[in-house]
Amino acid sequence: MVEEKRLNLPLSAGDVAGLKAGDMVLLNGKIVTGRDRVHKFLVEKRPGKEDLPFDIAGTVLYHCGPVMKKEADGYQVIAAGPTTSMRVEMYEADVIQQYGLRGVMGKGGMGDKTLRALQESGCVYLQTIGGAAAYLADRIVKTIGSWKLEEFGTTEAMWIFEVKDFPAIVTMDSNGNSLHKEIEAASLLKFKELAHLK
């Protein structure tokens, strides 16, 4: 088995520089979620860091719209796998630069604009396992808070989670490497051969 690297959040520029595409990691500490609406809001309204309930600099923004259950003493995470990251490609570079994220996490990888932002800002893209929602929810030890819950609803709100040994793979690093690009280029060659295309 490949050895996983245990990462404690928030991350420093140095932590990120030590990560390369292909590394398996385990996240520990506080992360936040954000998907379509959070990204759109952050870029269009540009709320200041002080407007967010938690300083997201150095942490990981997880593309996830969890299933949450309201209990007497707050919300409980039921299921929390990743959503397709590519949908927020047009916003992510801005969000990384504006808020000083050190990681974004989701599934399926992201495009060239984000890849450049990862290099410029010292950030990595992490892929975790799509659909493994019960397994991943078990790595979230606590729901610390939320932001925009009333306005966006449970799926689209920003949740602040405390995670323990949350598994992910670095698939885009801060040196311009992307496993997604490599796989896509290789499969394109095979596709052209099978479809008899030049």
């Binding site: 969890p66 039921i78 299921a79 929390a80 796998g81 493994a132 929602a133 019960a134 397994y135």
Partner: peptide, 12 residues
């Protein structure tokens, strides 16, 4: 785990 704890397999 999802089957044993009757939780959704995927959050979507």
């Amino acid at each position: 785990r999802a089957r044993e704890t009757a939780r959704p397999i995927c959050q979507d």
